[in-house]
Design a protein around this nucleic acid. Sequence first.
DNA 1: ACGATGCTTCGGCTATGATCGAAGTATGGA
DNA 2: TCCATACTTCGATCATAGCCGAAGCATCGT
Lengths: 231, 231
Amino acid sequence: MIAQVAALLGDPARANILTALIDGRALTVSELARAAGVTLQTTSGHLAKLAEAQLLIGEKQGRHRYFRLSGPDVAQVLEGLMGLAQRTGAVRVRTGPRNEALRAARICYDHLAGERGVDMLTSLQRRGFVEGDDAMTVMPAGRRFFADFGIDVAALEKGRRPVCRACLDWSERRSHLGGSLGAAVLATLIERKWAGRNGRTLVFSPAGLQQFVAVLAPPGIDRRPAPPATP
Amino acid sequence: MIAQVAALLGDPARANILTALIDGRALTVSELARAAGVTLQTTSGHLAKLAEAQLLIGEKQGRHRYFRLSGPDVAQVLEGLMGLAQRTGAVRVRTGPRNEALRAARICYDHLAGERGVDMLTSLQRRGFVEGDDAMTVMPAGRRFFADFGIDVAALEKGRRPVCRACLDWSERRSHLGGSLGAAVLATLIERKWAGRNGRTLVFSPAGLQQFVAVLAPPGIDRRPAPPATP
DNA sequence: ACGATGCTTCGGCTATGATCGAAGTATGGA
DNA sequence: TCCATACTTCGATCATAGCCGAAGCATCGT
């Protein structure tokens, strides 16, 4: 029964909780209460329902209780809903620096999304590292490229998770790179301190952005305007 | 605001309406009222809301009013929600011939889903016609194959819609073939009368199933059990 | 042991919205 | 023209569930 699940996502407080968790991190009940804009006890009730429906997984650590999404499929449905919401115009056009940073680079479950994510995938495709417009495969040249970058694609293929998955970007209406390869790229970005996470948004350092653009997303002959520098 | 859209899908009556339309056909208000299990006037109200949110599109034809999904993205979100609902065990395990036929072969917006759909994609991949496990590209051999079958892949590529898209199957938990190529295959199946639509389920004729298996989904060395004959 | 912090449970208030009966509008056919 | 069918609008009813205050449990630090 799909309505049962959808009703869970249909409450504003719960929707806020879920979108706060869409970057794959685990947050405490208090943090989620603040994100949702309701009191602690109300949040507790919501979390119980979401966990019972197995959309979230809760873990106790000391006197905190951490919640995270139960899997990438939940995040994918959430992004799908964002796409529908945007299409209808039911989206709040809240302009401002916060929203702008979010559009520039953010974290979708565990991989890079936003303008930077879309730019990177576009560049990877144009250089023949991955093939397919909407659906994709890593090509031999791509394997070499990622090996140079420090990612072993063959190792990723041993895992159960799809390596290279196109994930529709709700703000850009184009795909960015998901799957275990997308996750590995993001992990590397953070490990090398090219960028740091600030909640759901990803903030590049000036030098890091330069490196990122040079290595992963060099601008090319695409018809789209060249990506503006991050504010 | 994602909650607004999700709340629309969260009402049982509306969820029934949407799942009734998931095969991409247009149905009248009366037909949808029967599918939803509520009265005509209640249905009318629901449809007004769904149309206002642009999840549905309504067309007047004489004294009937036909409604259909506004696009494949709506169907994709619905299938995603079905996947989540199934995972939680919130799914009614209604065994019976009707459900069985649905699992065997059904229509997902405008392409083939269910066991047949998954079998077909598996076979296409094994024969090297499309590449990628979760993400896919049509290979040159695939172009020749589909040309023989009567589908011009190059022509499909002129359209704006993705040609070859992996679509997660809620009943099989594996992907089937979506995109304009998937739609073209289904259209051909029906045109050649290998199968006919009965609501959302797709019913193969005995001869049609034989042709389908021989041409599009020859069984191979996959470890999964061979597909049973359609009841 | 004690208090402070983090979270959960309970009870009652309230608002939202789903539903249907009844009446109204449009289209088609006789 | 008149009726039947298909659908929409209105109004009233009723149930669901979100919300918070208050009180209860659990864990940590001192």
